[in-house]
């Protein structure tokens, strides 16, 4: 446990992005990083059960073991329903661009 990890925990809101830099012991998990960041106290909206978390745009579980220089990200749910947005765009006659197809199937 001598070595330490440099971890960033980030919670991005539209007007303000909170970024906390941490030093954690080797073998720390995503949950430990969240707890150490103090963001859970600062933003009571963040719910460990409801919100999703990840590392560099990849959804990860709370017990994920972190690697050095990881960026732990706290996500917020979507406001729009992807299906509705697609329907609206179709109704307005706008074309979905490339790459939209596979997401459409997933949604």
């Amino acid at each position: 446990m001598a070595e330490s990890l440099s971890i960033e925990v980030i919670y991005a809101l539209p007007g303000k992005q909170e970024c906390v830099r941490l030093k954690l012991p080797e073998g720390s998990t995503l949950q430990q990083a969240l707890e150490a960041s103090g963001l859970l106290e600062k933003y009571p909206d963040i719910d460990l059960k409801k919100n999703k978390f990840g590392v560099f745009a990849k959804l990860s579980k709370l017990d994920t073991v972190l690697r050095n220089r990881d960026r732990v990200e706290i996500y917020r749910p979507l406001i729009a329903d992807p299906k509705e947005v697609r329907k609206q765009r179709a109704a307005e006659g706008k074309v979905m661009k490339k790459g939209a197809g596979e997401e459409g199937e997933a949604a």
Partner: peptide, 22 residues
């Protein structure tokens, strides 16, 4: 709609988000 395409395009990792997340 949380499609992650912008995240993949960003050269400096400035976008926070994941599939079907804001």
């Amino acid at each position: 709609i949380g499609c992650t395409l912008c995240i993949q395009a960003c050269p400096v990792d400035a976008i926070v988000g994941a599939a079907k997340q804001m």
